[in-house]
Write a protein that binds this DNA or RNA. Structure first.
Length: 636
RNA sequence: GCUACUGUGGCUCAGCCGGUAGAGCAAUUGAUUCGUAAUCAAUAGGUCAGGGGUUCAAGUCCCCUCAGUAGCUCCA
């Protein structure tokens, strides 16, 4: 007999070799119906699996990540099976479950059309109705390869050949369909109650642009129809928060055909941007930063020295001045380095923190451009910190805390990545090792959860990245902290130590917003265009009921305006309802409605864009209220 | 850059199997002076992204270019 500990710490005795499915069947009706997979000693496996030793057992449903992934992974197999039934000549690549759904990559002679998708969905429904049982089996390497060769699945053969020695090679079979797969899966195709194929896109085999481009079909699935509908509705709603849509509606910015990837900031966008920048300046002054500004165009020699010429050339724009080659800066560091080199530095000055709101230009592939999120010129809220090696940890912590403070103010949740040495990099492995470990240790000291992103560092050093989410959950890198031993070496930076000798400082490159453009985009999506009052282009609008109240409106406007609150008045001959509707669409935080009553009582009637009518109050009370909201940078 | 899709007045969109552009909003003008999400009327505005081709005839079919969207690659 086996001792099995359940999720609620209850221990039960089961006979050895029992199938988890049987265990589930002996449980409550609800769990029996909802079970999708199981977690045995922390490892997610099929319900088909058996128990052969004492263990902890947890039954997973759609509410559990493991259950959800199993269901969606099975849906991707159903998709592949349907495709094979309809188009036998298509070859299979990979088909994992991903966040919010799944995909499957196919090598088909021609691209899938919308009509194909409909056919495929129909066939998938058939497979679900057939309620095929998923059977797992393992094969030794040679047999596995032979099996896949028999099926003409070249990509699968390649995958198996690349599996490390000793790796278990498993397959899943459902009806006539067999796929190489590690699992886990749900017990039968009938478990998928609601699914939808959402889009088709090209995707390179193994994510390498030198490889063949395959057809990727994306989809999602649920255990209830209502969940699918809800998800699709949620996506629709999320699209209304898209900063490209809101940017147009709120007249924040635009991108013209004459300059793809080069944004134009409109007056409303500039108000937000300028406030963000002055906030940034205040905070950086407090945090001990100096501010500098360096040129946008600098000589080619500088870029050769910094390594950009060799490691970053595809992303750079070039020009010529008086016959000499120059480059438009893609990064601010080389200019900043020249600034450091202007004079001698004592160890007593260190760390030196030089910040720069620097406009950089980078050539991004046309297909990568995306509103303000991904552009070809942007202003980084950059800073370069020069320090003694002994100061690294403290400085990196300082930046992490600064970033955290910024994101908290905007109410952003973020997640952190540690990116390591990329292929096209400079410097010795030892340097990279030391730098990467320094960052890792700092993250661990601060007890920050992070994911390692292998090979994604800058060419001169490893980095800690802060990622923020957009309206539909895509993540974008904003803040970054990059530890660099290379530039100080290349530019022969020095400081005079206590011993009177010259020493090499270490350098940290960092941003908090990331770029003004991307940050404004994220912010726009986060607040759905209803910017917190301290950032709103118009903070209050005065709406007189009729012409009789214009004088009072004018005097209120002047009073509020004199307090540096961004106020406007709407004296068009329109009805109140119409003016309110417009103000509401512009997402103006406060509407001040004044009619006979207000003029008579010398007060105002306030409407909040979210709460609606707040009733009447005195102008002074309103000013106290809105000023507090602005000064405290409240997110409401 | 790659794969697929899209591109009609400032904005959102209609235009069936090719017959030679239409609505709403916005704008302008006039009327209306009104109490918490749309007052009424009139006027003006487009060589249908650009270029080439097929055709008696192209917004509608074909090709090229440009731009956008989704994804891949890449990245703040």
């Amino acid at each position: 007999m086996l001792k099995v500990t359940l999720k609620d710490e209850k221990e039960i005795e089961l006979k050895k070799g029992i199938k988890i499915e049987e265990v589930v069947n002996s449980m409550g009706h609800k769990l029996k119906k909802e079970a999708l997979a199981a977690k045995v000693d922390g490892k997610v496996i099929d319900l088909n699996g058996g128990l052969d030793k004492d263990c902890k057992l947890e039954i997973l449903t759609f509410e559990d990540e493991g259950g959800k992934l199993a269901l969606r992974h099975t849906t991707s197999h159903i998709l592949a099976q349907a495709v094979k039934r309809l188009f036998p000549e298509v070859k299979l690549a990979i088909g994992p479950a991903i966040e919010n759904g799944f995909y499957y990559d196919f090598d088909s002679g021609r691209p899938f059309t919308d009509a194909d998708l409909e056919l495929i969905e129909k066939e998938m429904n058939n497979i679900i109705k057939e309620d095929l049982i998923l059977k797992r089996f393992e094969l030794p390497r040679d047999e596995a390869i032979n099996l896949m060769k028999e099926h003409g699945e070249d990509y699968k053969v390649e995958l198996i050949e690349d599996l490390p020695e000793g790796e278990i090679i498993s397959f899943y079979e459902q009806g006539e369909f067999i796929d190489l797969c590690a699992g886990p899966h749900v017990i039968s195709t009938g478990k998928v109650k609601a699914f939808k194929l959402t889009s088709v896109a090209g995707a390179y085999w193994r994510g390498n642009e030198k490889n063949k481009m395959l057809q990727r079909i994306y989809g999602t699935s649920f255990i209830k129809r209502s969940q699918l509908d809800e998800y699709l509705k949620m996506l629709e709603e999320a699209k209304k928060r898209d900063h490209r849509k809101l940017g147009k509606e709120l007249d924040l910015y635009s991108i013209q055909e004459e300059g793809p990837g080069f944004p134009f900031f409109h007056p409303n966008g500039m108000i937000i941007r300028n406030i963000l920048e002055s906030f940034w300046r205040e905070e950086h002054k407090k945090a001990g930063y100096q501010e500098i500004n360096t040129p946008i165009i600098l000589g080619a020699e500088l870029w050769k020295k910094s390594g950009h010429w060799d490691h970053y050339k595809e992303n750079m724009y070039f020009t010529e001045i008086d016959g000499e080659p120059y480059a438009v800066k893609p990064m601010n560091c080389p200019g900043g380095l020249l600034m450091y080199k202007r004079n001698l530095h004592s160890y007593r000055e260190l760390p030196i923190r030089m910040a720069e709101l620097g406009l950089v230009h980078r050539h991004e592939l046309s297909g990568a451009l995306h509103g303000l999120m991904r552009v070809r010129c942007f202003t980084q809220d950059d800073a370069h910190l020069y320090m003694m090696p002994s100061q690294i940890k403290e400085e990196v912590i300082g930046v992490i805390e600064l970033a955290d403070r910024f994101y908290k103010i905007f109410g952003f949740e973020y997640y952190v990545e540690l990116s390591t040495k990329p292929e096209n990099s400079m410097g010795s492995d030892e340097d990279w090792e030391v730098a990467t470990n320094a960052l890792r240790e700092t993250l661990e000291t601060k007890k920050i959860n992070y994911r390692v992103n292998e090979g994604d560092g800058a060419f001169y050093g490893p980095k800690i990245d802060f990622h923020l989410k957009d309206c539909i959950g895509r993540t974008w890198q904003c803040g970054t902290i990059q530890l660099d031993f290379q530039m100080p070496e290349l530019f022969e930076l020095t400081y005079i130590g206590a011993d009177g000798e010259k020493h090499r400082p270490v350098m940290v490159h960092r941003t908090i917003f990331g770029s003004m453009e991307r940050f404004i985009a994220i912010l726009t999506e986060q607040c759905a265009g209803a910017f917190p009052t301290w950032l709103a282009p118009i903070q209050a609008i005065i709406i007189p009921v009729s012409e009789k109240h214009y004088d009072y409106a004018e005097s209120l406007t002047q009073k509020i305006d004199s307090l540096n609150i961004r106020v406007e008045k709407d004296i068009r001959s329109e009805k109140v309802g119409f003016k309110i509707r417009e103000a509401q669409l512009k997402k103006i935080p406060y509407m001040i409605i004044i009619g006979d009553k207000e003029v008579e009582n010398s007060n105002i009637s306030v409407r909040d864009r979210k709460e609606g009518d707040l009733g009447s109050m005195s102008l002074d009370d309103f000013i106290v209220k809105i000023s507090k909201e602005i000064n405290d940078k409240l997110n409401k």
